[in-house]
């Protein structure tokens, strides 16, 4: 009894420490975003005099609304393209047996080995060659580089778990192959699609290096770059209050997305939606 109680206390302590460690930066950003001027440089755990103008200034001093829209467009485009390609690839790699299937899966995974900087120059040439420089479509295309490998893997893994009999039943019931994928397999691997899509969205939403390199004008920038380029009245001043306000604003959609989908991911995985 006593040992169990001790173990439980230990568990809560550990969980508490973990939460404090992960949530403190967010909390600190929120607090800082409500402070202005010199108040930023005193340590307050609760803003004494909340300054909401940081939030309005973010939108006043640069086209931040446009930047958010850009991020939404790029992330959505990335997720859409990734899932569409991963659905097809996952079907082929997970359910069709052909020579070289294992090798192909290994190659897909191997592409994640290269750090972003290593491919930056080559990717830049590619984007420019396609005429997609300073273009949101170019960003979405380059993001496929890091979203596709894991979306393909996740969807392939889920596809494999669908019993062969279910696919066979659909074929016998008269469904053409595309219909088997669309009406039977995709609904069954939905938890996988949601998980992979969410991760791809977060990846695209937070991406900085490609976004900085492949865009030129304020109008084409995405949120992380826009935030990094927020500047103060002089080059000696960093407007922390506004930077933090902007950070809080762009964190909210991700939190909302995770909150909406996390139950679906969890229930999908736990209930074994695929059980025949």
């Amino acid at each position: 009894m006593r040992r169990r109680r001790l173990a439980r206390i230990g568990l809560y302590l550990g969980a508490g420490a973990f939460l404090a460690f992960t949530l403190f930066p967010v909390y600190w950003a929120a607090v800082s975003s409500l402070e202005s001027g010199a108040a930023l440089f005193t340590i307050d755990y609760w803003p004494r005099d909340p300054a909401w103008e940081n939030y309005s200034d973010v939108f006043a001093d640069q086209p931040f609304g446009r930047n958010i829209a850009n991020s939404v467009i790029v992330a959505t485009l990335t997720v859409g393209l990734s899932l569409a390609l991963a659905a097809g690839a996952g079907f082929a790699l997970g359910r069709v047996s052909f020579r070289g299937r294992r090798l192909m899966l290994a190659v897909v995974l191997a592409t994640t080995m290269f750090p972003q900087v290593a491919v930056l120059a080559g990717m830049f040439e590619l984007i420019r060659g396609l005429g997609l420089y300073n273009n949101l479509a170019g960003l979405a295309l380059s993001y496929l580089l890091f979203t596709l490998p894991f979306t393909v893997w996740v969807v392939t893994t889920f596809m494999r778990q669908v019993p062969a009999e279910i696919e066979a039943a659909a074929l016998i019931d008269g469904a053409p192959p595309w219909r088997v994928v669309w009406s039977i397999l995709l609904p069954l691997v939905r938890p996988g699609l949601v998980t992979a899509g969410l991760l791809a969205f977060i990846g695209a939403w937070n991406e900085f290096l490609f976004a900085l390199t492949f865009t030129l004008t304020d109008a084409a920038r995405t949120v992380p770059v826009a935030i990094a380029l927020i500047s103060g009245a002089s080059q000696y001043e960093l407007p922390w209050g506004r930077i933090m306000a902007a950070s809080v604003i762009v964190t909210l959609p991700i939190v909302a997305l995770a909150a909406v989908f996390q139950r679906r991911i969890a229930t999908g995985l736990a209930a074994g939606a695929i059980k025949g």
């Binding site: 019993p163 009999e165 279910i166 016998i172 019931d173 695929i274 025949g276």
Partner: peptide
């Protein structure tokens, strides 16, 4: 298979888990 006009019942039933009984039977 689709054009043979043959139906099949599988050992593990192979019902489509995301469809109701009616939708399962309506599928063919």
């Amino acid at each position: 298979p689709a054009r043979r006009n043959v139906a099949m019942v599988f050992q593990a039933y192979a019902l489509y888990p995301h469809m109701t009984a009616a939708e399962n039977m309506a599928f063919p």
